[in-house]
Write a protein that binds this DNA or RNA. Structure first.
Lengths: 243, 243
DNA sequence: GTGCAGAAATTGGTTGGACCATTGAACCAC
DNA sequence: GTGGTTCAATGGTCCAACCAATTTCTGCAC
């Protein structure tokens, strides 16, 4: 018996605007890339001030749902549905060691689970797709003699996608941003990620063999190597007192 | 050879406002709960319009960094540092069975990892805090003869907090929203969550015993019971065609 | 002095109107 | 066609009010 009484909202005009706009998007079946009505038109139609419309759109922009281009218009960046779940994550300290370790722990949890699910649920086509990404990655590794974060990422993305759960990909994609930024400032470890290379294929082998526990174990090993690299880098640079 | 040409930003006033405000927060060493300057004062000090200040604050509010109370002021809700990483996630699909199962798979991954980390890292005070929440939950279970989602949630929250990784709490908190919404429409299963009750104490026992693998295993069992309840409910109601 | 109701000040929320900066399309000279 | 120019549309910013919720102060009754 939860006595749940949602606080009444006497003023929530911008939320109301977003709800109306979400309904509009659904009714018009607007997809990513398409243009929304002008702020002025929205203000007039919804009988609110243009300023209120702007605050509402600012919310959506902050959520990455929408992109505003001055002089051009406002465009959808992602699918919008009336019942969306928003989870804004903020990680204190962008590039410091603790922050990266935090994301890595999340990655360990998700990557292991996704690999296991993938071993259970991936279809033949999806497994073939993963292998293709793996081949590309290995080729890039040979020709450029080192890990390539783009190709690496595509491999992992393929695994997440084949897990049958879209949330994995979305959550990790957001975190990948952070790692990407980090890899551009390698902090002393020149061959960052190098040690993780062989585990990509072992993960794929366990998935292809429909061995969830094996896939999970290999994924854990991969993350462990990245963790080691990270610790090594932190020890090199004494990053801890940064800022 | 990356031909990287970032688009130049001639106007980014609200971002500048946020940067300045973040600097202010750091300089004044403001923590969560503390009040920050009035919109009017900020506008005057930063030599921008109050409207611009509002757009900037709307961004932070959307990120959950700040809470605005009409007539009272704007208050910090979380620690703020100039170099934060924001990753707003929006997950499509609200209340249907597939969506809930998706979140549950994420929960399984995170809850298991968090319990294990907690067994490794939690201090004595944190373990005591978890036990306190557990006692409250068990008491509520006895007196009201059933699971209480609020007390249940507080227990899990304590575990996440003691994991030493703030991201766990943030991610799960967002998903809890979804489950809470769901529990208000119990879909036929009257004693939803009932089966998960005993595992709360077994998880705690393994944490207190500093047994990461045991804690992970018990957490997995708990999620499995919730998963069963969910499947049972879906079978009852044939929810699949909802919306 | 104490307690409390009501006034006043404070603060975020909203409005309407104005102007600026950028964009993109229509148009024109070459 | 090519390369400018003009011009309307659109998002970005500003201002000056007023509204609504909250907090603080004031003054009266006791």
């Amino acid at each position: 018996m939860t006595d749940f009484l949602p606080p009444i909202q006497t003023t929530a005009r911008d939320d109301a605007v977003l709800k109306a706009l979400a309904g509009f998007v659904r009714q018009e079946a607007l997809g990513p890339g398409e243009k929304l009505p002008t702020e002025r038109i929205l203000a007039e139609r919804l009988k609110v001030s243009r300023n209120t419309v702007r605050e509402a759109l600012t919310r959506w922009e902050g959520l990455g749902l929408v992109e505003r281009r001055q002089g051009s218009g406002t465009y959808l960046k992602a699918a919008v549905s009336p019942d969306m779940l928003h989870m804004p994550l903020t990680l204190a300290g962008g590039n410091d060691f603790a922050g990266l370790m935090s994301t890595l722990e999340i990655r360990r949890a998700l990557e292991a689970e996704a690999a296991a699910l993938c071993a259970i649920r991936a279809g033949k086509a999806e497994i073939a797709q993963i292998e293709r990404k793996l081949d590309i990655m290995e080729e890039a590794f040979r020709t450029r003699a080192g890990m390539s974060s783009d190709e690496d990422w595509e491999f992992h993305q393929a695994v997440f996608r084949a897990s049958g759960n879209p949330l994995f990909e979305q959550i990790i994609a957001a975190m990948y941003e952070m790692f990407h930024r980090f890899w551009e400032h390698p902090l002393g470890v020149r061959d960052f990620g190098h040690a993780s290379f062989p585990y990509h294929r072992t993960i794929f082998d366990r998935i292809a063999a429909r061995d969830p526990d094996g896939a999970r174990a290999e994924a854990l090993k991969l993350i462990a190597t990245v963790e080691d690299d990270l610790k090594r880098g932190a020890a090199n640079l004494k990053l801890s007192d940064r800022r």
